[in-house]
Design a protein around this nucleic acid. Sequence first.
DNA 1: CCTTCTTTCTACCAGATGGTCAGGGGACTT
DNA 2: AAGTCCCCTGACCATCTGGTAGAAAGAAGG
Lengths: 220, 220
Amino acid sequence: MPDTTTIRDTVRDTVRGAGRSSGKGAETRERILDAALESFGTIGYDGTSLDDLAAGLGIRKQTILYHYVSKRGLLGAVVDRSAADLNVALLEVLEGEATDWERVEALVRSVFRVALEQPLLMGLLREVSRPGSPAAPRLKGAMGPLMDRAQAWMEREMDAGRMRRTDAQLVLISAYSTVVGLATEIEVLRAAGLEPTMRTVATRRRELLRFLRASLDPQR
Amino acid sequence: MPDTTTIRDTVRDTVRGAGRSSGKGAETRERILDAALESFGTIGYDGTSLDDLAAGLGIRKQTILYHYVSKRGLLGAVVDRSAADLNVALLEVLEGEATDWERVEALVRSVFRVALEQPLLMGLLREVSRPGSPAAPRLKGAMGPLMDRAQAWMEREMDAGRMRRTDAQLVLISAYSTVVGLATEIEVLRAAGLEPTMRTVATRRRELLRFLRASLDPQR
DNA sequence: CCTTCTTTCTACCAGATGGTCAGGGGACTT
DNA sequence: AAGTCCCCTGACCATCTGGTAGAAAGAAGG
């Protein structure tokens, strides 16, 4: 599985009927993806059985296997779609007009917005960013290019003196794990019987921004 | 499974031969626990098969089931031992002479020390703090009293005006998820080909302390 | 030598899981 | 009406799973 493989291409490997997006099956495929995201993100990949997944959809397991060739293929498709969602949100910012620190702040806000709107996505990230996860390489393939791009941009900013010189990759990983940690936090909150509020998320975001500012802002 | 059940008691329920700690089996039990902690903490509970676990130890699966009655019993024993490790580290501080903010700082340092020495333990926490995990109630039973104690202490400090008045439980959960997030971060670092250094961990610790200070310190 | 207890193993099982295969029905084309 | 393609399903299967039953091996003690 070469690193140069694009997202679309890998999707085509595991999704029967990619290329045509119309037809009756398209809706089914989406419904399967939704349910799979929910299941993978909560009870995990290993904990998800295709039979249960299908039953929840009023469908037979074979239908799932028809659209996504195997269970791993399904996971791959879920990861790809989720990564694509993130990519859209991030590219919007990256192609915006914000510069320097403003852009960093916009990126963080963008990611947190996605995390709030799709908490399941964070659960999936957590599940999948585990070493030995069947989708770890897949995630790397889907998110890697974006990470590389962000890192390259940061290093350019550093060269231009608009950012403090630090290890860009380290900062990125730190930010990434903070966001993923949100999933844990939200779930722990729920387990403790508290409904997560905007406040807890905002607190985390403020913390992350402070950390980034301390790491990157050239003045202090 | 009543909340008042002590850790020792629940261990006795699931471990054959508790009470005698000598004998040939004691070493085997420990080896099994070590391997199980590693496996649960990395590939997860569902992803762990007793056969593989046993094979890795040069042992038959039935030997595991002899010592720990069931797979869940094994998980319970792992969680209990890990929680006990954490408890020891924390009680040391709680019974120390540090007061007020110093005590908070000492607690954080203590937890991070454990996290560094036993990164697998963090992986287990992450795995187990997932909703629907078979060990979620077990974890709650093992860690809950400590959390309650910490919360009660914080509220006493608040009443005495030595701590700023905030939602103690929320602060605790935030701190907890930060520590657990360390596991994610360390693993992502490894996945990126970087060996986690003291520096990354120290950065996180500093962040957490700053957050706690901002939340709790009465002056500012 | 016999008994008892602990520890480990061989043999086996019922259930669940991911996956294969062949077929059926509907819609659209020719 | 016949062929074709897409979508879905029932029947089936190999494998793996956690778990049970029973026995062998060794140590300890009488």
